[in-house]
Computed example of a mutant assay.
Amino acid sequence: MTEAEMIENRRYRPKPGEELRVFAYGSLMWRPDFPFIDLQPAVLYGYHRAFCITSTHYRGSVEHPGLVLGLDRGGQCQGRVYRVAPEDAETAADYLHRREMITGVYIPRLLKVRLPDGVDVTALSFIADRQHPQYAGKLSPEDVVARIRDAVGIAGRNIDYLRNTVQHLDQMGIGDCSLHRILRLLEAQS
Results as ranks from 00 to 15, higher is better:
A4T: 12
I7S: 02
N9Q: 15
R11A: 07
R11Q: 05
P14D: 03
P16A: 11
G17T: 08
G17E: 14
E18R: 09
E18Q: 10
L20G: 01
R21S: 10
F23I: 02
F23D: 11
F23R: 05
Y25H: 07
Y25L: 10
S27I: 07
L28P: 03
M29Y: 06
W30Y: 06
P32K: 08
P32W: 11
F34W: 10
F34Y: 14
P35D: 11
F36R: 00
I37Y: 04
I37C: 07
D38G: 03
Q40Y: 01
A42W: 02
A42R: 06
V43M: 08
H48S: 03
H48I: 04
A50E: 15
C52E: 11
C52S: 13
T56H: 02
T56Q: 11
Y58D: 09
R59Y: 09
G60C: 08
S61F: 02
S61Q: 04
V62R: 14
L69R: 07
G70W: 08
L71H: 14
L71G: 05
D72C: 03
R73A: 03
R73T: 13
R73C: 03
Q78H: 11
Q78N: 14
Q78P: 00
V81K: 10
A85P: 00
P86C: 01
E87S: 07
D88H: 10
T91S: 01
T91Q: 03
L96G: 02
H97I: 12
R98W: 03
R99K: 04
E100V: 04
M101S: 04
I102R: 05
G104F: 06
P108C: 02
K112D: 13
K112Q: 11
V113I: 05
R114A: 06
R114G: 01
P116Q: 14
P116M: 12
D117T: 00
D117N: 09
G118K: 14
G118L: 10
V119Q: 15
V119L: 09
V121C: 09
V121F: 13
T122G: 01
T122E: 15
S125E: 03
D129P: 02
R130I: 14
Q131L: 00
Q134N: 06
Y135W: 12
A136C: 01
G137T: 12
P141S: 01
D143I: 00
D143H: 03
A146M: 04
I148N: 01
R149V: 03
D150T: 02
D150H: 06
D150G: 01
V152L: 04
A155F: 00
G156D: 13
G156T: 08
R157S: 04
I159R: 08
Y161H: 14
L162H: 13
L162T: 08
R163A: 01
T165S: 14
V166Q: 13
V166M: 14
Q167A: 13
L169Q: 12
L169R: 07
L169K: 07
M172S: 11
M172I: 01
G173N: 10
G173K: 10
I174S: 02
I174C: 07
I174D: 05
I174H: 09
G175N: 08
G175F: 01
C177R: 15
C177Y: 14
S178Y: 10
L179R: 09
H180D: 15
R181A: 06
R181Y: 12
I182Q: 11
L185S: 03
L185Q: 11
L186E: 05
E187I: 08
A188Q: 15
Q189I: 10
